[in-house]
Design a protein around this nucleic acid. Structure first.
Lengths: 219, 219
DNA sequence: ACAAAGATGTTGTTTTTACAACAAAAAAGA
DNA sequence: TCTTTTTTGTTGTAAAAACAACATCTTTGT
């Protein structure tokens, strides 16, 4: 568990907390680490959790498969990001999605009740973590609204432009890398892969952008 | 402002706090009330806010219009619900959407910093409100994920089924009322109104559901 | 190095949606 | 009540997306 402390230090949840203090807090917050092989499920739709989790190694997808086998990727989690925050409320019910490791991953679980209930121990930074978490959930909220913005676009081309230009902005460069292959990007934007591939190539011919695999450049 | 205290008492934000304590907290939290006529903008895309707000009268839509005049309704706010919670983090940036009054409305604004910074006054329930807010934002998060679930459906029919069946479940009855007219529902699900209207009528012919204006019944 | 598996691009066909235009019904206002 | 405005339903056409099938290029594992 200790080896992940430098990673935790860089997360939004532990912003402003030193490594020693994080080490102290781990037991206070009921932290546990589990590892997953590529393709394994971290959480499944319908399960109940009482934890907020932070990805400390690898990469995850939050996704859902319907009756007909259509997969929707709701989001992608990189190292340092958290998930499960939508289910901290006492009456929040079962998970709406699956969480799957897209590469070998490690996830740290924190007991929600022990985060929210300020402990009587010497957790000097406990309240800072609660505030950090508060902001982090709010931030996540904003990202979801942003994704809804992409999804609400009517055509495949508009969805692509919406997503790619936001990604360029976020990464601060017209040239950037996306965390999806074609099928995953199609699942993320809820469109057909071949139609999307076709549209991307059309846009390239029109001189709107360049790309190679998952490297893109907007022109 | 006082007349809204009974309404605040029933909100998630002030759950478990008595009316007298709410009255005391209003000044402590920097509360202000503004009123809006039907059709007026409460907030506009691109603005910056440092407030969490609660709707105390009327009804609001969170929406966005693009270059081509297509409107997307991201969400609907009823009395007692809050909005703006996605922008509480210090670095959250400008609003991504417009907030519009769909009927004459009143909104209460609370200064975020005064909520988060526990005051030194006699606000016994301040920390309870922070915790309530924490859960409320998390809950909101879950709703956004749920809406993403509807939006990620490929066809108009699937989107309708996804939305209507969730609404039936939420209202605890196969017969329920939705807070949208046809055009608004189409904007909410990001589909064409006439195509959607057509699809609804087909579904009625097939015996899947009944409806009259905004009253629906699943069969 | 080679075979196998996976990812990407391409094309033609079918299905669905968007768009436009208008009729009918309901609601709002004078 | 009567008129006007808004909302809803209906239809035909044009555009777009989904689907299916396959060629090509990459990556992975042996």
């Amino acid at each position: 568990m200790k080896k992940y402390i430098p990673i935790l230090k860089r997360t939004q949840m532990f912003a402003g907390v030193g490594e020693k203090d994080i080490a102290t807090m781990l037991s206070c917050l009921g932290a546990r680490v589990y590892t997953y092989k590529k393709g394994e499920y971290v959480l499944r739709q319908g399960e109940h959790i009482n934890d907020i989790t932070v990805l400390v190694e690898g990469s995850l997808h939050i996704q859902k498969d319907d009756y007909w086998g259509n997969r929707s990727i709701l989001g992608q989690i990189s190292v340092g990001e958290m998930f499960g925050e939508a289910y901290v409320a006492p009456e929040s019910g079962a998970l709406l999605n699956d969480v799957v490791a897209v590469e070998d991953s490690a996830v740290m679980f924190f007991d929600v009740r022990r985060i929210i209930t300020t402990c009587s121990n010497a957790c000097r930074f406990h309240s800072a973590v609660v505030q950090n978490l508060f902001f982090a959930i709010s931030e996540k909220n904003r990202k979801l609204v942003q994704k809804l913005g992409h999804m609400s676009k009517r055509s495949t081309r508009e969805k692509l432009i919406s997503y790619l230009s936001e990604e360029a902005k976020r990464q601060g460069s017209a040239a950037f890398v996306i965390p999806f292959n074609r099928q995953q990007l199609a699942d993320f934007l809820s469109v057909d892969r071949s139609a999307m591939s076709n549209e991307l190539c059309k846009m390239r011919k029109e001189g709107l952008l360049e790309f190679d695999r998952n490297k893109f450049r907007l022109l």
